[in-house]
């Protein structure tokens, strides 16, 4: 089929990208993995191999244990809230309501904004104030509308910590799941719902037996995307809280930056990065494989 002499041209044109990704993604990942097995825990590179020593130390490190716990808590809260809020909003917006465009755009707007911007804003909103300032931020708002019982220390309370960061992240990403679900809902063939209605199914039954199964692949995709975002979360933590009291808002990505570029523990930082990559891969690789098996 192909014209003579042109067989290699396409490959020639895609080669720079392949080489660039090959080096900058796969090459660098291998390099980082290599570093994670060395003794490079000082400013000067030291490539003496120490096996899994850095990993062993890391899993014994209390800060890292807290980080893993925080990531878990964050992921659970963030992913489930985004899914539920996104689904709820999508279903409501799908009811042929007035001002649909306004609601949709409003809920999606935070997606356009940088994590640093939202971090700065939410840092002030969740600033609990102090006894000389009184209540500020949302606490002040709660006080004004008589919801005093909701006031709390937010990210400055070690028992809340990362959960406050999760709220900011939900603010930013729940519109995204709404958009996904809305696209999905709009993709359900009308006949399907009508057929169900004719069969005498009420709205709830239609939703449960027709809509939800139809949305399952979207939910699956959203879990992967949101899950991998929450594993990587960094910018928001930097701008909003940092490590927080007793590392209550610390996450592996931040620990990696901190220990590598401040503590000079390059090998330790590299091991954290590789663990993060491993966790992300657990989510992403099966997803990539199934998605492209289907298409091919």
């Amino acid at each position: 089929m192909q014209i003579k002499g042109d067989k290699w041209t396409p490959i020639l044109f895609i080669t720079p990208s392949i080489v660039a990704v090959g080096i900058f993604v796969y090459g660098f990942i291998s390099w980082t993995s290599f570093i994670s097995f060395t003794k490079w825990n000082n400013v000067m590179p030291d490539y003496t191999l120490v096996g899994f020593e850095n990993y062993r130390k890391l899993f014994n490190n209390m800060r890292f244990q807290i980080d893993l716990h925080n990531t878990f808590v964050f992921t659970v809260i963030f992913v489930t809230s985004c899914l539920l809020i996104g689904l709820l909003l999508a279903v409501l917006i799908d009811q042929r309501i007035k001002g649909e465009g306004i609601f949709r755009n409003l809920f999606l707007l935070p997606m356009a904004v940088s994590f640093i911007v939202s971090g700065v804003i939410w840092r002030w909103l969740f600033n609990p104030g102090s006894f000389q300032l009184g209540n500020i931020g949302v606490n002040q708002l709660f006080e004004k509308v008589g919801l005093n019982f909701l006031t709390c220390g937010w990210y400055t309370d070690p028992n809340i910590g990362i959960k406050a960061v999760a709220i900011a992240a939900i603010w930013q990403f729940s519109g995204y799941t709404m958009a996904l679900y809305l696209a999905g809902l709009r993709g359900i063939p009308l006949e399907l719902r009508e057929a169900a209605a004719i069969d005498g199914a009420n709205q709830w039954k239609t939703f449960y037996y027709i809509t939800l199964p139809f949305l399952r692949p979207i939910t699956f995709g959203a879990i992967i995307i949101l899950g991998h975002i929450s594993l990587k979360i960094f910018d928001l933590v930097v701008a909003m809280t940092g490590s927080g009291p007793a590392f209550s808002s610390d996450v592996p990505a931040f620990f990696m930056y901190d220990t590598t570029f401040r503590g000079n523990h390059f090998a330790q930082g590299a091991s954290i990065a590789i663990i993060l990559l491993f966790l992300v891969s657990l989510l992403i690789i099966p997803y990539l494989i199934t998605t492209f098996r289907k298409e091919a």
Partner: peptide, 13 residues
Amino acid sequence: TDHSALTWDEAGQ
């Protein structure tokens, strides 16, 4: 009790 919410100067208040 609110030490985790304060920087050193806020505590100085």
